[in-house]
């Protein structure tokens, strides 16, 4: 069942000189009880996408398309109706929990604010549920911690508290934007384990945004590979990571050194830098760095087509090879 259905989302930003197309017509869905991973580098638009779902984009952003949440288009809602959904039905986990919490108030006060706003319940009830949630995310001495300030929490603890806050109102969808990027590897592992466990036990839907292919392969059920505002490849996590079709995904997967990488060989690498949005020309957005580019790629932007069940790729070269294979078979 589709919880979130994004159709042909386009986001552009007006600047003093030009209009930059940050998201160029992407469509995806999040099913109930599933983790959708979004992988991308700088400028891919992964954060902008999540902010557009929360309707938190800055004023100079122009959004078109549809974001259907429970079959309601979020883009059509009034600010007041959106307030009911934001933080209640859809909540967010940020990369920097230290800045997401207000340093002047205790964690408890900030939990109470959210709960009171959305549920209007009594003080004792608020505290009971907050402490219960803090316990759930593995914060020891939760009663004591409830009355502490954010700076009294360590880096791993505050990220747990952030997760607890996001889960507090029993949301249907949680968007996690690079939730473990600043954390040490051992703490990252703890937080990832926790998120996965909670998601599985409460059948939560989640969008997990990261640049780290390792993290995403641990967390996600399905993933989207985003590059400069376009989906290049999407499918089940195993299909995309183990047998990627798009040259970009292939390059990305093989360029990451792993513990088993030989010390003597050269690392595979994608040439060039991620271009900036203002440098984008027509045609495929990956054209300038692609190892398999052809004439058509320069002119026409490829669309997603299915390579295997549920696995989609947007690449002319892949499409051509497929057709050749088909012709051979015939």
């Amino acid at each position: 069942m589709k919880l979130l259905n994004v159709k042909n989302l386009r986001i552009s930003f007006k600047t003093s000189k030009s209009e930059l197309l940050a998201i160029d017509g992407i469509s995806f869905e999040v099913n109930k009880g599933e983790i959708l991973g979004i992988v991308g580098e700088t400028g891919s638009g992964k954060t902008i996408t999540s902010l557009s779902i929360m309707r938190l984009l800055p004023g100079n952003a122009k959004v078109s398309g549809e974001i259907l949440f429970n079959n309601k288009n979020l883009l059509d809602l009034s600010e007041k109706e959106m307030d009911e959904i934001r933080g209640k039905k859809i909540s967010m986990i940020f990369q920097e929990p230290m800045t997401a919490f207000d340093p002047l108030y205790t964690i408890g006060a900030q939990f109470s604010e959210v709960l009171f706003k959305h549920e209007r319940i009594r003080k004792e009830e608020i505290k009971r549920r907050s402490v219960e949630m803090l316990k759930l995310v593995g914060i020891p001495e939760a009663e004591k911690r409830f009355d502490q300030y954010p700076h009294e929490y360590s880096g791993g603890m505050i990220q747990r508290a952030m997760i607890a806050l996001a889960l507090l109102t029993n949301p249907e969808l949680v968007i996690a934007d690079e939730p473990t990027t600043g954390l040490d590897v051992t703490i990252q592992m703890q937080v990832l384990n926790l998120m996965k466990r909670i998601q599985r036990t409460s059948n939560l839907s989640m969008i997990f945004i990261t640049h780290d292919l390792g993290v995403i392969s641990k967390m996600a059920d399905r993933i989207i590979v985003l590059y400069l505002g376009k989906i290049l490849e999407t499918g089940n996590v195993k299909d995309v990571i183990f047998s990627p079709f798009h040259p970009y995904t292939q390059g990305l997967v093989s360029s990451i050194p792993t513990l088993s990488t030989s010390r003597t060989g050269k690392l595979h690498s994608i040439p060039g830098n991620v271009p900036s949005l203002s440098e984008i020309k027509k045609g495929c957005r990956f054209y300038s760095r692609c190892s398999q580019r052809m004439e058509i790629c320069k002119e026409k932007s490829p669309t997603l087509f299915e390579v295997s069940s549920g696995h989609y790729v947007a690449c002319w070269a892949v499409e051509k090879n497929r057709n050749l294979v088909k012709m051979d078979e015939q």
């Binding site: 930003f13 600047t15 930059l20 940050a22 700088t42 400028g43 954060t47 902008i48 800055p58 900036s276 949005l277 203002s278 440098e279």
Partner: peptide
């Protein structure tokens, strides 16, 4: 906020 980094000024 990300834009300034992306556009070459």
């Amino acid at each position: 906020m990300k834009k300034t980094k992306e556009t070459k000024n």
